[in-house]
Design a protein around this nucleic acid. Structure first.
Lengths: 196, 196
DNA sequence: TAGAATATTTCACTATAGTGAATTTAAATC
DNA sequence: GATTTAAATTCACTATAGTGAAATATTCTA
């Protein structure tokens, strides 16, 4: 954890002095000095005050990812997964960076076919879809909810529930999918429901 | 900050006892008890130990967003911004949730036209694009880098630099854009470069 | 380079985070 | 419902986070 260093960097980048930050954050400048040099270990409370004064969040200050600059993915190179049975295709459009919580995917469903049931994601995971061609039925929670989408529509949902995509029409359906897992971190994968 | 409550919820959801968590995290169970009831205020160090023991991150435990479930956006309703001069269009495909750091957009550039120069985003902001129709030249950093993309290509880049999209062909260019701002929080908007 | 002005670090002190053992509460077993 | 067992809380104590003022280092100006 390089919390202190990050604070110092940010503070410097704002051209702030310890005293200024002290006033904004309501943390003594001596404390700030010690924190920046990792001599003392702030409570999350004061860490939070500091984050706010720097106009940021503690989450950010604690996040250690630092990543790549640019990645070009030519059509021919992109990973494609095809379900032999249904003909359902998944084209990965975003690089798969471990540190990244976003996936950008183009999905194609043949006429009168479907994606199969996707199990619930972890809590906090969101999906955003856009229909670029054809029609699509989205079913959530094992059928407890469903919408019919047509070309040009988009749909956003919390993906911590079963979901399924169905193409009831006689033409291919193309839709883009953005999966946002950036807010997931906790949550238990496959919890035993009740084992008393 | 409801840190303690979150810890307790997570611990319970894993069917763990204070003692178990204590062993894993190397934090005394009395301390844990007090933290969960907000009687004491952990340092980020022990908060971190707890997060790890719960197989999560401190960022997550401190994140307070809790949001919507589903949002349907019909084609006719979606917000579209058109630049009268160039004819450049931006179609917003994702809901604009303040808490959300993702934007999903469909952009359309007329033949022989361009987007204009987008100023650098804050550090940490990423863009991911996919060309669904036509050709597109992407220029980064005021011309210091450029690529030519064709239908089917996708491109990922750190958007903390000037960027510009150009359509040099005689047909419309359609491209999808995913802007990920989830990892930005700090950073100064328009820093005075050098004011000694 | 000397001297004023400001930013940072040090130090002695106070408040509170963090601990281990004892106590209480809750839950299971007979 | 009494007894045992385990989980959660309380308590007295120790370690350390956090403070204000003094000392030091740094930057600026003449």
């Amino acid at each position: 954890m390089v919390f202190g260093k990050k604070v110092k960097t940010l503070r410097k980048s704002r051209d702030m002095t310890l005293k200024e930050l002290s006033i904004l954050s309501n943390v003594s400048s001596s404390m700030l000095s010690q924190i920046e040099r990792e001599e003392k270990n702030p409570t999350i409370q004061v860490a939070c005050q500091i984050a706010e004064a720097l106009n940021t969040t503690l989450s950010y200050l604690l996040d250690e990812q630092e990543d790549k600059d640019i990645i070009l993915l030519k059509k021919a190179q992109r990973p494609i997964y095809v379900d032999e049975k249904s003909g359902f295709q998944r084209h990965l459009l975003s690089p798969s960076l471990s540190s990244q919580g976003i996936e950008f995917i183009l999905n194609i469903i043949p006429p009168f076919s479907e994606s199969g049931v996707f199990p619930a994601h972890k809590v906090g995971v969101k999906e955003n879809i856009y229909i670029s061609k054809g029609r699509l039925d989205v079913e959530l929670g094992g059928g407890s909810f469903s919408v019919e989408l047509v070309e040009g529509d988009s749909f956003y949902f919390a993906a911590d529930t079963e979901h399924r995509f169905i193409n009831l029409s006689n033409e291919e359906c193309h839709y883009f999918l953005v999966i946002d897992s950036t807010h997931y971190r906790g949550g238990s994968s496959t919890l035993p429901k009740d084992n008393k």
